[in-house]
Simulated scan of single mutants.
Amino acid sequence: MLRQTIAALAIVTAPAATAATCGNDSSGFERWKQQFAQEAAALGVGASGLRALADARYSQSTINADRNQTGVRYELDDFIRIRLGSLDNFAAQARRVKARAPQYYASLEQVYGVPAGIILAIHGMETGFGRTMGNTPVIDSITTVAYDCRRSDFFTPHAIAALQMVDRGMLAPDQRGAAHGELGHTQFLPGNALRYGVDADANGRIDLYSVSDALASTANFLRQKGWRPGAPYQEGSHNFRVLNEWNAATVYQQAIALSALRIDG
């Protein structure tokens, strides 16, 4: 599910006059890659990122998923039933996950001010606590939607960011993720992974497929978007509005907040 706006993303695209020509099917993808490589190089993408771009393949599965999106139109009760099963069962599962590393979740709240319940709710809702992180090559999917004319302006900065992540060792060229290039335990878009990513395990590399890095990055994202430590997060509060930065669907925000309240208990 797409979320995480890029209004503040510190990545600029090349001037429109030199922009690669978008398309609506696979026929122009190879030509677009050659043009886009020039843009990417001008924006500082290095040899590793450019090789990943050269190897990228048009992802028909990504286009199929994009064309078939209907948006979140469920009532809250239906959304919870379909996505979570039930709030109580979901919260119980999250508490079991928390019990494996309670000090880690306490440290996230201490550093970023975001309660464990919020982080666990996002982790569980996005990937089932890391069980389903996607099976589409990230570089394939993100370059495909950057090439596609429907939302090229939105996805082009994320495509540049993904190539920069390859250069920095943050993303393997063949790493798999979700259909629109979302990656890792909490499904960051590449531009936000680059901007808000945290090396929580201090191994010298930000890796959104590492649970510690991914959850710290999620907490950092929310804090940077205006999360107020110690403040309430239920509907109508300032912190609830911050959840809109993660996902614009109101039922998604409501499910996060209601789940977190049960998890934090």
Rank of each mutant, 00 (worst) to 15 (best):
L120W: 02
H185G: 03
A255R: 00
V114N: 03
Q253I: 05
G46D: 04
G85C: 07
A116G: 04
W32F: 07
E109G: 01
A94G: 03
A214S: 14
I82Y: 14
N239Q: 07
W32N: 00
T127E: 02
L120V: 08
N192Y: 13
A41I: 14
Y196W: 15
R67P: 01
D174A: 07
A216W: 15
T21M: 01
D55T: 03
G181S: 15
N89G: 09
Y112W: 12
I206M: 07
V138I: 15
L108G: 00
V12E: 14
R100E: 07
W32H: 02
I206Y: 05
N247M: 08
S212D: 06
F221V: 02
P115K: 03
G113L: 07
R83I: 05
I63H: 07
I139H: 06
F154Q: 00
G44A: 11
A200W: 07
L43P: 00
I118V: 14
Q234T: 15
R262M: 11
I160A: 05
R131M: 02
P137Q: 08
A161S: 08
R83Y: 02
N247V: 01
Q60A: 14
D153N: 02
G236Y: 06
G71R: 12
R95W: 09
L43H: 05
A257N: 10
P137Y: 09
G265T: 14
G28S: 04
Q4T: 11
F154L: 01
E235V: 15
G184P: 07
L215C: 06
L50E: 01
Y58G: 00
L43S: 04
A162Y: 10
L50G: 05
M125G: 09
I82W: 13
N220L: 10
Y105E: 00
A202V: 14
H180L: 11
